[in-house]
Design a protein around this nucleic acid. Structure first.
Lengths: 188, 188
DNA sequence: GTCTATACTTTGATAGAC
DNA sequence: GTCTATCAAAGTATAGAC
């Protein structure tokens, strides 16, 4: 039994890795079938909308994970500095210390930008705004918080690009450390 | 006469825009034919290796442009601070103030990463090392110059990703200004 | 050099048996 | 739910006339 997927949630998780590795156009249905161990029949049973619905489901899953694990704490944790430190920890873990790319960023640069434009924009804006909120609650001035948040989110993306480009995950780890230190939060 | 391309160099320039817009897999030969006004026969006359040779030629052209306009001055200009300021100006112009994506970065995240891995890595490493060299010559300590250069190059990439993701080129302009100011170079 | 026509493969997607 | 068979369309690439 080479079956690796038993329900839709498993399928979405597997699809995420496949899209990360091969991109949207590069992930053919035959490749997806081989990787998930699911035939086309099963795939279209889970995702009647075909490949586009598969990718949309993956993006929704990513969005949901970040909303729960990162954005919500940034907005709601009574200790905003702790929430920001947690953001860096979760980000490092999620991106496997630079060995995993950001699918949303890859889609933003790639051929499917327009197809998922709304969801891509929402993901980045939500991250930036949640971080700005935490910075404000931690005592930053309005304008400074917004600018700093935009910088951190965009620099994280850049570190993922460069880590992958030069094939050195340490680039990402160094960037996270530098960004966190640059915010000058009190240690717990 | 809808012909838009008269020689190989024109074809490479047109191909660069097409790959930027649609990605490698998304740029089909029929699309390329339609955009360049060249038939398949002409395309295979210019690029016997097919699409892969087209993309490789584009990457080589980009690499060459940056080497001449940015990397060489960073290494050779007797005034390293001026070369760094020039780097920011050229980068802003090249990426159309955030309206153009970096094809090398897009390839690094995308499905063709492995195919062009060597050239992608070289581009990023050359930029980082040339900038570190200029920073060193401008008086930075060894370790600080390398770290700062890595940060600037990766943050530029991230700003391009985010500008595209939220569809706001101003993100890129703000990032360049912040990075340049952060280097604390004397104004000319 | 450039075009048209075409070979051959793979794509995403559907239908129907079980 | 899952499989096999199959579809039409699009993919890259080649051949040959001009």
């Amino acid at each position: 039994m080479t079956r690796t997927v038993n329900e839709r949630a498993d399928a979405v998780a597997a699809l995420a890795e496949i899209f990360r590795e091969f991109g949207y156009e590069g992930a053919s249905l035959s490749l997806i079938g081989a990787r998930t161990g699911l035939g086309k029949g099963s795939l279209y049973h889970f995702f009647p909308g075909g490949k586009e619905e598969m990718a949309a489901s993956v993006l929704a899953e990513i969005d949901g994970w970040f909303a729960r694990a990162v954005f919500a704490p940034l907005r709601e944790d009574p200790d905003p500095a702790a929430a920001i430190r947690r953001m860096f920890r979760e980000t490092d873990a999620y991106f496997r210390s630079g060995r995993r790319v950001c699918l949303v960023g890859a889609f933003a640069l790639g051929d499917v930008r327009d197809r998922f434009a709304a969801r891509i924009a929402t993901y980045f804006a939500a991250w930036r705004d949640a971080l700005a909120d935490a910075l404000r609650r931690a005592g930053r001035a309005e304008g400074s918080a917004a600018e700093e948040a935009e910088h951190v989110v965009s620099a994280i993306q850049g570190a993922l690009v460069m880590a992958r480009a030069v094939d050195d995950p340490a680039v990402f780890v160094r960037a996270l450390a530098r960004l966190e230190a640059g915010l000058g939060l009190a240690e717990p």
